[in-house]
Design a protein around this nucleic acid. Structure first.
Lengths: 209, 209, 209, 209
DNA sequence: ACCTAAGCGAGACGGTACGTCTGGTCTTTCT
DNA sequence: AGAAAGACCAGACGTACCGTCTCGCTTAGGT
């Protein structure tokens, strides 16, 4: 989560482990009720039953706190085994859409992405805590499809990385855009259309090297 | 842009047209230098050589102002005629990526999208000022491809709308995600890969009704 | 009151005489409702059904306007003939107290006096419009008392001026202080006590040159 | 044994005692330079080297602040022992006039009095902080004069209160009116005349029950 | 059983920006 | 030329948070 305290803690009172959890939970609660821009750290501290100093001792500011609070939400994504690549993709995309439809995810995620355009450390934190962390789903899905014979075994490892990245950007980007920018639900019908488009593209790409 | 005063203004000093332009330009300038979160309306007013009251008389807050300032950026997108659908798409996607790479676009756009998750009026303003406004590119490209015979003429109009929306979400979403979330440039190589994926998907979709 | 050029107006639209009266009346009305510090010239203009520019064309600011509006209130003071000096004084002091008890007088008068401590032109305007204008009451009362034989005829004119000034400061000051600072009504009992004190002092003074 | 301190403040950082003094001093300084109407709390805070919030944490607004700043000025009044009642009065009146001649006193005092005509809490604050606080001078002077045999011992206590109040209104009112409204100095000559008037009145009053 | 160093709740602190209001001025059109 | 209307610049208002800083108190591990 937060890469804190690599060094040995020798003396003094240890930091409260409960406080960490309470603060992150309070942050998500505040995101739901207030959204990112009206969320204040003083309010989060109060909700968590914690002093502001305790919060600042652990996170350097609102952005870092929100990244950590939001990142946890995406850990609940799992790749369901629904029997076919298409069905698997549809399943995970629907889960992703469901998370994005939750106000704490949408408001928080977009805001920190916006902030990250001017803060490289923040961008890196988002990449490692959220993006790279969830690429496991693409890799897992690919592997499963190869086992099933739906996709050919990979040959060029570099090519594979490029394709995984592309797929991830297309999937995550399309769902986010549909949900937050176009402002319409990524419902089953849309997910079916989208998955057909994606698989068609992948098949075609696979056919013409 | 801002739908102001459709009614006739007869008496009193008329609003300065220069002020409007100066404020929007100053807003983009401030977005470049400061980003969304550190942009203050007082600072924008100062840059524009305008009093804060003049600014607040026209826009109700930071979000509305930034939407209008950013929306203008996307009006410069044009669909180049490069001879084939693939080349046309690559061309416009590259243009889109170039705009998104500009700091005033990235920071401002993501931030107002984040805010719009808690403000329906703002979401609608974004949709009408930015999203719907640029769907013209998809429609134009489709028409041109049909003229060339690259795409079959549309039969079901409802189906057409759904496909246009899908394409728009996929294109815009993928480029945004690549650029802002993954934090890597949407360069020519990536655009070629992406276009291939998209056209493959469309072709496959067209083949299997 | 306002020393404006009564000189020849040759061309153009003549100034509205009604506007002057409306503005002063609106000023007093606003003083009653809002007090000096919350009175705004924009509000006065609106109440008077007049544009702000019209108001500024006639008065240079809030202070000048309020002085003129308040000065008119004191013109209604008259010296009643109640048969004796003591009774005359009591009568006029009660009138004065009654005016001061009106909120437009109290709030406005004290405020412009406060302002006048830093604005010589304003102090002079107050002196000529209010103070000197009402000294007529002291002079008149003195003359009447001399006719009655209650006071000896004046001998030294310089001495007379000094006494008149002193009396005026004592009378006006005591009533103002009682009413506004001590915050208690200058009622008949108090006025009787005060008048006794004043006449006693004058008699004693008269006896010992 | 029960603690006498009501609402002891135990936790949290204690308020800075220096800040209070610095703010009141800065207020008087600003009154001298700017007068009441141009004094801004932001400016006072800056002069005191204090944040605006610190100021607002202690005082609810400009009026309350100025009352406290001005009240301190009058604490330096003392009743000198000059051997006779007349001389004592002259001495204290001259001191009072000297304080009123200072711009911070004049501008501030009159302004808050003006404001107090529309704000009962403020009027009460003025009464208790300034007026009642300085009545000590009248009581002390009276006692000393009785010791000397210049005034008869008091008989009716209610009558005494009424007389003290009357004297205070007459003295304070006359000096204020002379200084601020008539706009002339309360110099030694005037004070001598005034004291003669006052003592004459008191003597006459004493003689005729 | 003490010592000591860090953590903790509380809340004051110096700042910055907010969005609103007012003071005066300027620019329209109408009278 | 004056008036009504209202936009304009300038700047103070009182509030809300920021991130930091004292306070006095708690809570552990090392001695």
């Amino acid at each position: 989560m937060q890469s804190r305290t690599p060094a040995t803690r020798t003396s003094g009172r240890p930091r409260s482990a409960e406080a960490d959890a309470a603060i992150l939970a309070a942050t998500r609660e505040a995101l739901v009720e207030l959204g990112w821009s009206k969320l204040t750290l003083g309010d989060v501290a109060m909700r968590a039953g914690v002093a502001k100093t305790t919060l600042y001792r652990r996170w350097s500011g609102k952005n870092e706190l929100v990244v950590d609070a939001v990142a946890e939400l995406f850990d609940e994504l799992v790749l369901p085994d629904r029997g076919s690549l298409a069905a698997d993709i549809e399943g995970v995309v629907l889960q992703f859409a469901a998370i994005l439809a939750r106000p704490e995810a949408a408001s928080g995620l977009m805001a920190v992405v916006a902030e990250s355009t001017r803060d490289d450390a923040l961008r890196e934190r988002i990449r490692s805590s959220i993006v790279e962390r969830q690429k496991r789903l693409v890799l897992e899905g690919r592997a499963r499809a190869q086992t099933r014979g739906e996709l050919p075994p990979e040959t060029d490892p570099e090519e594979t990385v490029r394709t995984v990245d592309l797929i991830f950007d297309v999937v995550a980007g399309a769902v986010v855009h549909r949900t937050l920018v176009s402002g319409r639900a990524a419902d089953e019908e849309w997910v079916r259309d989208f998955t057909a488009l994606l698989l068609g593209g992948l098949g075609a790409e696979a056919r013409q090297p």
